[in-house]
Amino acid sequence: MAEFADNVAFIGLGAMGYAMAKNIRKKMSPAGTLYIFDIFRSACERFYDEMQACGPTVIADSPREAAELSSTVVSIVPGADEVRQVFLDTATGVIAARSNPERLIFECSTIDSQSTQAVGEALLVRGTGIYVDTPVSGGVPGAESGTLSFLIGHSKPSDTNPISHRLEKVASMMGDPKKFFYCGKLGAGLAAKISNNYLSCSVLLAVAEAMAIGTRSGIDEKLLHQVIHHSTGQNFMADNVQPVPGVVPDAPSSNNYRLGFKTQMMIKDLGLAVQAGYATGIEPTIAEAALRVYEKAAVDPRCIDRDGSSVYLHITDPPQKPTE
């Protein structure tokens, strides 16, 4: 529907989604309308007040309404249940919007591959649009700076597939094209994301434990960080999400564990990793062990709603069990 070609719907204005939607509104056609929806209307109202000067923005009452007049839909919500609600609810979901086989649907949430395949196939049958799993990596800082990585469940851009060029164009409003990875087919982007998250969540816990062991053995934390950085233990999480406060100035820990990725969300991501492991015949021993620690940290008041690196607080001073 050419008359709606410049319109975009954005569903899910959480910490990541809010920043991603801001970049879209700044970079999309000024003639296009951005339709926004979130279950917390206050987030939509805050976005509207902040961004209305950048171009037309409309607060929708449902995902269906947001998608109705949009040629592109972007969604990022907490989990598979929310994805199904957004897309498949027969009254308020995107599937209830008018048919448009050329509507391009970006699903940026991190969920299991099987769920995304089921949702994509249902939308395709209904003629709602082309649904592509496009999970992102880079956290809130990457969302704010527009430098996210995209793991895309679709083939690489080619002249024989116009959709692939639209994928690249829309993703470029939120991410860095040098970090776009085309994984081939629906669900494959999520398979790659889950494998990555297996590592990032587990390695973060390993860094926290290693730093705790070293510092309690009498090594200065900044010196220990430098040793690891210049030795075989060097890794992204130690360098950028260092869990010990005051070691890496820009790390969440040095900023009162400013939220990048909630501790509670570690449970979801590691749970998906464990599920994927068993589904593929691999016993996910490390993810299972890390999951048990994060499950305890997720109910520790010092870690709740703070960056996942706050697990360091939990392992260095675990809550005392109440005495009987």
Rank of each mutant, 00 (worst) to 15 (best):
E3F: 15
N7Q: 05
I11Y: 06
G14L: 08
M20K: 04
K22G: 03
N23E: 10
N23C: 10
I39E: 08
Y48T: 12
P56H: 08
E65W: 03
E68T: 05
S71Y: 01
V74R: 00
V77A: 11
A80E: 03
E82L: 13
T92Y: 13
R103H: 07
I111Q: 01
T116E: 05
G129D: 01
I130R: 05
I130V: 10
S149F: 00
S149Q: 04
G153Y: 00
K156T: 12
V170L: 09
P177K: 10
K178G: 15
A191S: 09
I194Q: 00
I194P: 00
S195T: 04
Y198F: 07
S200M: 13
S200K: 11
T215Q: 09
R216V: 11
G218F: 04
K222F: 07
H230K: 12
T232G: 14
N235F: 15
N240E: 12
G246D: 05
N255D: 11
R258W: 11
T263L: 02
Q264K: 06
L270E: 00
L272K: 03
G281C: 13
E283T: 14
P284W: 02
T285Y: 11
G308F: 11
S310M: 12
L313R: 01
H314A: 10
P322L: 15
E324N: 13
